[in-house]
């Protein structure tokens, strides 16, 4: 089982990218689980196409422990197992602590043992702003962290912060930095800026995604690019990226 945490600045395209990667790996016959770690609970919508699904924290809040694993896990495109951690009411509670509680509940209910996914993606909200948001990279969770960034200064700054968190935790047996995914926004000197970032944090760019209207078109259909436009250039880019990420984890697909 390969467990990967995907971090990056809010709005950089993490959920879109992760969902397409999950779809690409599922097309190859792998069993993939995608866990959205964001109170908005909108990571997996393009895979399961439902208006909303019960989040882990909603189930715990309403039913304590009186629910089954199947209530938390929803099968989506090509059998991708979709989970939304959920979170507190906006402006209240503690979202970071919510991520911890949700991931612990998922493990307690035996999600990894029962479904035996080949690949698990943790799609994590924004930056590593507190202890809760480092949960997916802790011991027993992700093996590697991939950071998505564009060439925009704010995205690069967030990526550097995330890399610093990974570095700070190196004595704790946490996930290692797997690399950077460049999600192009076509800003000036974009590739050079992100390459410079990679050098600064002793990492590398493992794949690039072009800016494409196909992505928006698929999103309007509430689908992944791979499902909506399987023969598009963009679908090819996602498939290539999925291959490269697996290669970084020592798996050829």
């Amino acid at each position: 089982m390969i467990k990967l945490a995907i971090y990056g600045k809010g709005g950089i395209g993490k959920s879109t990218t992760v969902s397409n990667l999950a779809a690409a790996l599922a097309e190859k016959g792998l069993k993939v689980m995608q866990i959205g770690c964001d109170p908005k609970a909108d990571s997996t919508g393009s895979l399961h196409h439902l208006d909303r699904v019960d989040t882990v924290l909603e189930l715990v809040k309403e039913r304590k422990n009186d629910f089954e694993l199947e209530d938390m896990v929803h099968e989506g495109y090509k059998g991708v197992l979709c989970v939304e951690a959920g979170g507190p009411t906006p402006g209240m509670g503690c979202a970071g602590r919510g991520i911890i509680a949700a991931l612990e509940k998922l493990a307690e209910k035996g999600a990894y043992e029962k479904y035996k996914p080949d690949v698990v993606f943790y799609d994590v909200l924004g930056d590593v702003v507190c202890g809760g948001f480092s949960m997916p990279m802790r011991g027993g969770y992700a093996d590697k962290v991939f950071i998505i960034t564009s060439g925009e200064n704010m995205a690069i700054h967030a990526a550097a912060n995330i890399a610093m968190a990974v570095e700070n935790f190196k004595g704790r047996g946490y996930a290692q930095l797997g690399g950077i995914i460049l999600n192009c926004r076509d800003v000036k000197n974009e590739a050079e800026k992100v390459e410079e970032l990679a050098e600064d944090i002793n990492s590398k760019i493992v794949g690039r995604l072009s800016r494409s209207e196909t992505v928006q078109a698929a999103e309007d259909l509430n689908m992944t690019v791979l499902e909506a436009f399987p023969d598009s250039e963009m679908a090819g880019e996602y498939r290539l990226l999925a291959t490269k990420i697996m290669a970084e984890c020592g798996v050829e697909i």
Binding site: G96, R97, C130, G131, M135, G139, F169, G171, R172, G173
Partner: peptide, 17 residues
């Protein structure tokens, strides 16, 4: 520490080292 997500197992690992 439970509320702020302090990872005491990881802290213990660092102290042990």
């Amino acid at each position: 520490p439970m509320m702020n997500g302090c990872d005491l197992e990881a802290v213990a690992m660092e102290i042990e080292a």
